[in-house]
Design a binder for these strands. Structure first.
Lengths: 132, 132
DNA sequence: TCAAACCTTCACATCCATGTGAAGGTCAAC
DNA sequence: GTTGACCTTCACATGGATGTGAAGGTTTGA
């Protein structure tokens, strides 16, 4: 798969895919003519990267957590330095904080929407419920 | 409460608090001398804003969801235009996506950390567990 | 063989959340 | 009454994720 197809599959621009490579988030093989070639699995990885970026993690951090997600068993024993483990623990905790914050606010938005919906239903039946 | 105190309470720089105001995320009263004065509740709001920003939402979106979180009952009937409701529904769904993505990846990181910890324990007892 | 649709690198542009500093007004304390 | 800690606005700077365009090589198909 070349960069155009990967771009279409993932929704990331070609420019962005080169950027991710530059940042060390993905790797590519090169054809004889210099074109990038990607493994099938890269599509999933790119989507994962975009999800994490979208969730507020910078590439620098994503780069560190990605290796954990490939094939846990094989990589666990690779090069897990104490500093890296500390970083990962901190990131895990920060992710949990983000999750909690997002859940709280999502639920609040959802509650608001439901309240509006219920009220609209009331108004549809009789108007002058609260506002008037 | 003036801007310095709010800054200390929230960890947001004064500059940032002015920026949030400029973006319509918070409001302030002005004293006779032009100084900004803040209501007590603003501290919580600023923390909420920072949480959402940290979770990847841009100010533009935060501005739209914040009104839902104040006093749901009172505001439900304020100015809920159909477009705004659509926007909110979309954002609610995007937040859910973010949450799911973050949970997946956080769990993966956590699983990795546990695997490393278990392996370290093994190695401490007998070495040559998997790698050798 | 020529055009269209790919690809390459390089480099500058943009948006957004912040930092930072200048130039100046206000207030409290010594 | 002057110093220092606060405040104001204005404005330029920065870093990260992207867009965009130029200048040029490659592949594919009419």
């Amino acid at each position: 798969m070349r960069i155009g197809e990967l771009s279409e599959r993932t929704g990331a621009s070609r420019r962005l895919l080169r950027y991710y490579e530059e940042q060390g988030l993905i790797i590519s093989q090169r054809c004889a003519n210099g074109y990038r070639t990607y493994d099938e699995r890269l599509a999933d990885r790119v989507l994962q990267i975009r999800g994490l970026l979208d969730a507020g993690l910078p590439t620098r951090i994503i780069k560190q957590i990605l290796p954990c997600l490939d094939k846990p068993r094989d990589i666990v024993f690779a090069d897990a330095t104490p500093e890296m483990l500390t970083t990962l623990e901190r990131e895990r905790d920060r992710m949990t904080e983000r999750i909690d914050c997002l859940i709280r606010n999502r639920d609040a938005v959802a509650a608001y929407l439901e309240a509006v919906r219920d009220n609209v239903r009331c108004e549809g039946a009789g108007e002058a419920s609260v506002r008037g």
